[in-house]
Structures are given as C-alpha cells and as structure tokens.
Design a protein around this nucleic acid. Structure first.
Lengths: 237, 237
DNA sequence: TCAGGGTTCATGGTATGCCATATGGCCCGC
DNA sequence: GCGGGCCATATGGCATACCATGAACCCTGA
C-alpha cells in the first residue's frame, strides 16, 4: 500500500479559498494523515501523486512539506524527497524529556496564573478521564489525558510556551498514543494526575514540576521495558 | 532604504550545488541578514526582488520563507507577503521565559552529563568573556556569553534540546544583542555566570536551574526599565 | 479644493514545464 | 550462473509563466 492509496479517498480537492493560506491547509491535512497513522512513519511522500490526490499543484504541496519538515513531522532528504518522520527511540526519549521540562515549567507558572474556573475545568476533565477508564475506552482516556496536560500549559497564558508544547506534542503524538494504548500503568498514571492537580491547587511549584518532568517519561520507560512494540517503519518503496 | 538595497551587495548568486538543499541555504542567508540587522524587524520581504538579488528563483525563496516562518523569524500574512518578525515586548518576555526554562532544565541534565573537558572549556570561555569585558569589547563579550549558554545545553547531549534552544535563541538574538549592548549590569551578570559554573561543577541541580531561569530574564527586565530603546519597526513602504 | 471612484500596476499565489539525478531492471561479460 | 555496469524511467528541484488580488494614483465631479 502506497502513501497515496491511504490518502486517495480523502477530499478530492480543497479549492475553498478560505482565509488560511493553502500551503498551511495542505500541511494541516498531511499532519492529520500522519497523526491518524494513515501516513505511517518511514513512508515516503510522493509529491506528484499526493498533490493530485489533494487537488493542488506541487508548489503549495512542496511548501507544506517544508513546513512539516521544520516542525519535525517529515524528514526531507536532499534528492530523495520526503518521508514521514520516524523518531528513533533516542530521539523519542529526548522529545519526551523536553516535553516534560516544558510542562514542568508551565506547571510552576500555572500555579500563579491559573484561574478558579480553569482549575475546575481540569478537575472535570480528570473525572471524565476516570470515566473513560471505567469504560475501558482507551481513546477517550487518551484524549482527556492530553487535554489535561494541554490545559495546564494553556493556563500559563504564555503563547510561546503553548505553541512549542503543541508542536513537540505533535511530534510525539503517535508514540504517546501507542504507549497509552499498550501500557497497563493506568493506576499510577491516575495517581500522578491527582497529585499534579493537588499540587497545582496548593501552589506547590517544586512538587508539580518534579511530577510533570517524571510523569511523561514514565510511560515511555514502561514501553522501553516492554520492548517498544510498534509498527515497523519503512512501509514500502 | 528597501529590504533589497540592504541585500543587494550580497553574493550575486549562490549556484554552488553543494549538499544542503537550496531553500535551506537561502533560508540561512536570510537568517543571517536578519541577525545582522540588515533586514530589520517589520521590514517587508519582497519575493521577486530578493530572489533576483540572491540569484535564485522565487520558488526556493518562497520555501525558504516558509521555513523561516515556522521558525518564527518572519511573519507570513495571507495576501501581504512576508515581513521580518518583530516580537512584541510580551512575546519577547515569553520567549525569554521559555529560553530560561530550557537552559535551566539543560543545566540539571548537564550536571550529570558534562565531561571534565567540557567543563574546562566553559571555564576558559568564561575567562575569555572577562577579557572582553576588560577591553570593553561588547560584541566579543556577547559572543562568549552566548557560547557559554550554548555550551551548557550542548553538554546535555540531548539533540532535540539543543535544536530548540538554538531556534528560540535565534528568535531572540537581535533582542538579546541589543540588551547586552545597552545594559550596564555586567557585574551582576558575571557573578551569575560564575555561580552557574560553580553550581554546574558541584552538581547542584536546584541551584543551577534557579539561576538560569532567572538569569536570562534579568537583562530583559533591565531593558524594560530603561524604556526598551530599540530601532523602530516598519522601515519603508 | 477635496473627496470618491475607477483604473492600473505591482505583488503574492498557483500551475506547469524542463532539467538533473537517483533507482531499478536488464544485458553483457566473466 | 552470477556479478557488475549501463540504460531507461520516474522523481524531486528549480525556473518561469499566468492569474487573481490588493494598493496606490490619478482623474473627475461636486
């Protein structure tokens, strides 16, 4: 199955001249395909074919690829085109470390900046997450889990922090998704989340920072131990 | 003076088909122009003119602009083209906060990871920085200052961390340059640097983190107090 | 003289065509 | 029979041409 077969049945064209520039719209579409795992890591992205599939020319598509390249979602090698980025375990761990550091720092800022309402919303999301666990709905659990982390960062009101957190999260989305799906450490994850929210409410900055920095890596190291069961890269020529 | 007048006397063309792809080379050139303040914040970047000045077509130039846009060095508005990014004071502070957070975290990692040689090299650079101060050579001081911070991050061996640190630093380069040129707090900056290196050698993680997180913001708040004397944006029609 | 509208020009956006190169298959020679 | 080199083809890279849109300027009428 080629990269294009996966995307063939997407919107045939996107000629809607809405506000956002076309390259960014194209980038968003490809991003989506990557996140949904329809474009799998290591899979080559063929310009002509994908451009035709999306109903755009090669020019905006190439610009979209440049965007995704800087974002770290695709690897652009000089004369060999673009392949969906397949972070090595080492790189995954580095990204998770950075993610943890950013969230930890955001936590300390959020201790001062978070509003009552936002705090309540986080608690509410936490309960929804618990509900999803009860139902064994791993996808919903994952979504709420992400929402909580995102919520903490957004509570800082630091737009730059939010943007970079989002970007790094994108690069890890697939990994984290797989991890969250396979890992059985729900109980400890829940405990950590509760500790995070408590520390946030109490304004205990060192504590929330420590927990958040460790929390993200925990699931990864769990996976490493399991033997990183993951779909192999390099799908096909 | 237009954006192109500034760049007119650059290399007439860059047809050297070296390894790095042309859009990245073009991006590097524009980056350089921005960092050297020849392309000033708020200044529009005209595709055709700049492309001709650089001896390339519009296509790779546009791709370069997309790269720089994701990096945050230029702002790309839908039908109005690209302008050199002019971070607001708020955004500058947010970026500095994030930079401090990354360096602080890197410091804690470096406590464990740094080698003897790297440590000695940092000390050496520190002394070179002191020498530059003695001579009143602000530019050299600035370079060595940056080198020390970069060195700490690089000592972690975390490639992702290094890359993001570099990127954020680029977005702030001009600002930090101006700040370092105007500020008179050399003494306290030196003291902080010495404290950083001591903490690093002693492996005092909480201390190095605290210092680094504050250190970067200090100069900025100094500038804020001075009344952010900076070249005004929006240079020409 | 000033204001409004229309026209024109320049600029960014997109599509397409040509070129160089990398890859895969095939043929020839050992 | 197997291996290496050559050729064909497809792919990415760049340049260019065309199109649509935004802005500035001028002309005209009040």
């Amino acid at each position: 199955m080629t990269a294009t077969d996966d995307i063939q049945d997407a919107e045939p064209d996107i000629d809607d001249p809405g506000d956002p520039p076309m390259p960014e719209r194209v980038a968003a579409l490809i991003r989506e395909q990557i996140l949904e795992d329809r474009l799998k890591p290591g899979m080559p992205v063929r310009e002509r074919i994908l451009a035709k599939a999306l109903g755009v020319s090669r020019t905006p598509l190439r610009e979209a690829l440049k965007i995704l390249s800087v974002e770290g979602l695709v690897d652009l090698t000089p004369r060999r085109g673009a392949v969906v980025a397949a972070p090595s375990p080492k790189e995954q761990r580095e990204l998770l470390q950075l993610l943890g550091a950013i969230e930890g720092f955001a936590g300390t800022l959020a201790c001062d900046a978070i509003t009552e309402d936002a705090m309540k919303e986080l608690r509410a999301t936490h309960y929804e997450m618990l509900a999803a666990i009860m139902r064994g709905d791993r996808l919903t659990y994952f979504r709420h889990n992400q929402a909580i982390h995102r919520g903490i960062v957004e509570a800082t009101g630091n737009g730059v922090l939010i943007a970079y957190h989002r970007q790094i999260n994108l690069r890890l989305y697939r990994v984290r998704y797989v991890v969250n799906l396979r890992t059985e450490r729900w109980e400890s994850a829940i405990a950590e989340h509760e500790a995070i929210l408590d520390a946030l409410q109490a304004g205990d900055k060192p504590r929330i920072r420590t927990i958040l920095e460790m929390h993200v890596l925990a699931a990864f190291d769990q996976m490493e131990r399991d033997g990183k069961g993951d779909a192999p890269p390099t799908a096909r020529p």
